[in-house]
Design a protein around this nucleic acid. Structure first.
Lengths: 182, 182
DNA sequence: TCAACTGTACCGACTAGTCGGTACAGTTAC
DNA sequence: GTAACTGTACCGACTAGTCGGTACAGTTGA
């Protein structure tokens, strides 16, 4: 079993994803993590520190992802679009969780997301050597996340979408991207 | 002076935009609208009905916008990208307000936004006769809104951005779009 | 014509419940 | 013996919604 600290962060993320920021109360997080409220507070003395934990996790996962993106065989643009589709990876979950925190007015969440996105845009710009194309592709990726943000929340099933159909959609987007960068 | 009902809806939108969903409490809305809480409740007996008022307003503004988009001289694609940049128009404000309501778990908000977006995608598809290009352009527009959603909130200045610079960015996006639809 | 009444618009104090956070005594595992 | 908890009781701030009341323009009927 994962450490209590990790289970608490997982539970917080999960609640942010599936129930929204308002429902992610300390009591609810403790219950889902299988610890008492006292136990939660032992690890995270305030809710801000809990949010900080999720932001840290995002920053770390995003740094790993950036490294993969730079060295991806298919190139950063395809890699970026591919990974912009919500797939429930740890990085996906962290991004959406932090986006929800931002909606709740958490300042660190905005800064963290901005840093992550700036990094992506920089990698796209470096690889494509065309700032306009990089910006356009970045926007398409943002759009995919925006869609995910609206498909996910409030008690719906955990989004186990049609993978074959999604791959088709991805191929279509790749063809459009080829027109942009070509 | 606008009717109390309209002032209340304006105040609710404004608070959703600038302070976020959590801060848009009944007391705060009443104070900003210049009515008492009792007066607010007279017009909107529950918070859900207040949200319903904003959703109705969005649906109406979006219908007007769809008509303009269909008959735009520059074509629906350029019109869509142009209007996807946040400019603080009544439609912009209504969209962001409803997006924030969605984050707060309001079911009607999701449905309203989905309907509006489906309409846009349909218009793009009809005009371009290319579903892939339509989807890509739709994503770019979503991405622009996603950016706006993250630039706006939590006590920041009301976003009066550099119009000349933005127009340049728009021209660059248009050139990318020409590659897609060409 | 004027008293009685109706409906609309609004005020502000209050209530019941929720949430973040505190406090602390006791338990378990290494 | 100490770190990592559990369980419970509590507090203060805040929030949605309630409720009794006010003001006043317009209508009705003798």
């Amino acid at each position: 079993m994962a450490s209590a600290r990790d289970r608490i962060l997982d539970a917080f993320e999960e609640l942010l994803l599936t129930e929204g920021e308002r429902a992610a109360t300390l009591d609810a997080v403790a219950a889902r993590a299988g610890v008492s409220k006292g136990g939660l507070v032992y690890h995270f003395p305030s809710k801000d520190l809990l949010a900080h934990g999720v932001c840290e996790r995002l920053a770390s996962l995003a740094a790993d992802d950036a490294a993969l993106m730079r060295s991806a065989a298919e190139g950063p643009a395809r890699f970026y679009i591919r990974s912009s589709r919500y797939r429930g990876t740890p990085l996906d979950r962290a991004i959406v969780a932090v986006a929800r925190l931002h909606q709740g007015g958490n300042a660190e969440a905005v800064a963290t997301l901005r840093a992550v996105e700036a990094q992506w845009l920089a990698i796209l710009g470096d690889a494509l050597r065309d700032d306009d194309a990089a910006q356009a592709i970045k926007l398409m990726g943002d759009g995919l996340y925006y869609e995910a943000l609206f498909r996910l929340p409030t008690g719906s099933p955990p989004v186990e979408s049609d993978v074959a159909g999604d791959d088709l959609e991805l191929e279509r987007l790749f063809r459009v991207i080829d027109k942009i960068v070509g």
